[in-house]
């Protein structure tokens, strides 16, 4: 019954993306094109990131947390933000409100990320006879990642697309975006230095993603009020 398990894990990993698309007005306005564009931008960004990682980073033989290396990694991680900026601000999207644009971009982005990073291990690992919780946790991580990406996209659209936002909120927006963008480094720190195990890390990710989602949602609402 291992194919069954694979199926379960796949539902957990990719289901939320589909549900998000069909449940929100994204499906009504047919924003699939935007999502696909975002996914393509993600692919390109991932390629650039790989090249950067390969050129600037040393391979550590041991699983030691090297601050300099990690800082470098975080810097390279900001390429993601640049990619997101490109997808949000530079790319032309037809007939789409700002409100839906960031959701569609975030969704496409997160889905591409899940496919690229999680599908192959899932296919290889979850079909084996041996049972581990790893793939279920990995699915949960994909959920957290979806929430993070959409939050980041929301904050990004606030930063780059909305002109008349309240001045007092700007630092908060930037701080939140920073926190989300440095999330991979924070998680790497927790894992290697604090020695957290996978379940704990995933729990942390889920909680923080929800917190960040609530905060960015509030920020979005607050920014929308004066304009309307």
């Amino acid at each position: 019954m291992t194919l069954f398990h694979f199926f379960n894990c796949a539902i957990l990993t990719f289901g939320p993306h589909a549900v998000y698309y069909s449940a929100t007005p994204l499906s009504e306005y047919d924003t699939l094109g935007t999502s696909v564009k975002a996914a393509v931008v993600y692919l390109a960004t991932a390629l650039v990131k790989l090249v950067c990682l390969a050129t600037f980073l040393q391979v550590s033989e041991t699983e030691v947390f090297d601050p300099y290396q990690e800082a470098l990694k975080a810097m390279i991680g900001f390429i993601d933000v640049a990619g997101l900026y490109f997808a949000l601000a530079q790319l032309t999207h037809r007939n789409i409100s700002q409100n839906h644009k960031f959701q569609a971009v975030g969704l496409g982005w997160a889905f591409a990320d899940s496919v690229l990073h999680r599908l192959a291990p899932l296919w290889v690992g979850a079909r084996g006879l041996e049972f581990t919780w790893d793939y279920v946790l990995q699915g949960l991580e994909a959920n957290a990642n979806l929430v993070f990406t959409i939050s980041l996209a929301a904050l990004g659209s606030l930063m780059w697309l909305r002109k008349n936002k309240p001045k007092s909120l700007i630092p908060i927006i930037y701080t939140c975006a920073m926190i989300i963008a440095t999330m991979p480094s924070i998680i790497s720190y927790l894992r290697r230095v604090m020695g957290w195990h996978f379940p704990k890390v995933v729990g942390f990710e889920l909680v923080t993603s929800l917190v960040m989602a609530v905060i960015s949602c509030q920020l979005f609402v607050l920014c929308q009020r004066p304009s309307s």
Binding site: H5, F7, N8, I11, L12, G15, V19, Y20, A23, F131
Partner: peptide, 30 residues
């Protein structure tokens, strides 16, 4: 080869949980 395997019951249960999670998520989002 020694495998630690999960039962079919567990898989069914997991499917049930995941299904209800998706349904709840769907309803919440709508």
């Amino acid at each position: 080869n020694i495998y630690q395997v999960a039962s079919v019951t567990f898989d069914l249960l997991l499917l049930l949980v995941l299904g209800s999670y998706l349904i709840v998520l769907f309803s919440f989002l709508v």
